[in-house]
Design a protein around this nucleic acid. Structure first.
Length: 246
DNA sequence: CACCAGGCCGTGC
DNA sequence: GCACGGCATGGT
């Protein structure tokens, strides 16, 4: 199965990446600009090796998922191999707070505007995503002016509770879910996205509007435990698949 | 003019 | 416990 790097980077896990005109992908991470054409470019870089979770056998997982049932077989076959990124906790938290009742294109726009306003420039026109410290002085008015809308107070609450993010790793999945939801604007769906795409918790199964449709239509008598031990990755394949269906 | 987007909050029952 | 309306913004 061929690697679908574009779906991994631009399919809604991360809002850090952009596709260049030459087909390469670039992002500002770890205080610098990374530009890659394929995963081969990531093996020699320790940061990217960790970020792309290169020690995990995603191709093997894809095969196991595809063997589960006919729907998953189709989802995997039509998508190609995708990976679960290991993103910075703070970046993931704000990214998925931004994601509620929003679409990927607009989320990416908000992500970039926050970077330009509160982050710092590491290359011409390329800005880091701001740390919680850098966002400390932000006001609700400023955040709303950038287009965050009703999410502005949620971002402020996350800034004030950023310390929570360093406590998550030691918690069980359920306790981690509960802890994250003490931040305003974080409910079950956003919390599970943060846990999957930043904390390597593969038992998460985000239920957004697309996945509710998938479950109702194709798995009416099932729940996320059906996909064990590949809940998160199965969800990503089904999400990618149903969205491509339209 | 509607309706929707990787939902959540506050309220009411 | 569950159902419901409201919510900023930009795209279709």
């Amino acid at each position: 199965m061929n690697e679908n790097l574009k779906e991994t980077l631009l399919g809604g896990q991360s809002f850090s990446w952009r596709e260049e005109e030459d087909g390469r992908f670039s992002a500002v991470l770890n205080e610098r600009v990374y530009t890659i054409r394929s995963l081969d470019d990531a093996f020699s870089d320790p940061f990217l090796y960790d970020y792309f979770d290169l020690g995990y056998d995603y191709e093997g997982a894809a095969k196991a998922i595809a063997a589960k049932d006919e729907i998953l077989r189709q989802a995997v076959a039509s998508t190609g191999t995708i990976r679960l990124l290991k993103q910075d906790h703070w970046i993931a938290t704000i990214s998925f707070i931004l994601s509620q009742n929003n679409n990927i294109k607009r989320i990416t726009g908000l992500y970039n505007r926050l970077s330009e306003r509160y982050g710092h420039e590491v290359a011409p026109g390329r800005f880091t995503f701001p740390t919680a410290e850098e966002m400390k002085g932000a006001t609700e008015e400023e955040l709303r002016a950038l287009g965050t809308g009703f999410r502005a107070p949620f971002i402020l609450d996350a800034i004030s509770k950023e310390g929570i993010l360093s406590e998550i790793d030691s918690l069980s999945f359920d306790d981690a879910m509960t802890k994250l939801q003490t931040i305003k604007g974080i409910g079950p769906k956003v919390a599970s996205c943060i846990l999957i795409f930043s904390y390597q918790r593969r038992e998460g199964f985000p239920m957004d509007v697309w996945m509710k449709k998938v479950m109702k239509e194709y798995y009416p008598d099932k729940d996320p435990s059906y996909f064990h031990p590949y809940e998160a990755l199965s969800q990503q394949y089904l999400f990618s698949w149903i969205r491509a269906q339209g």
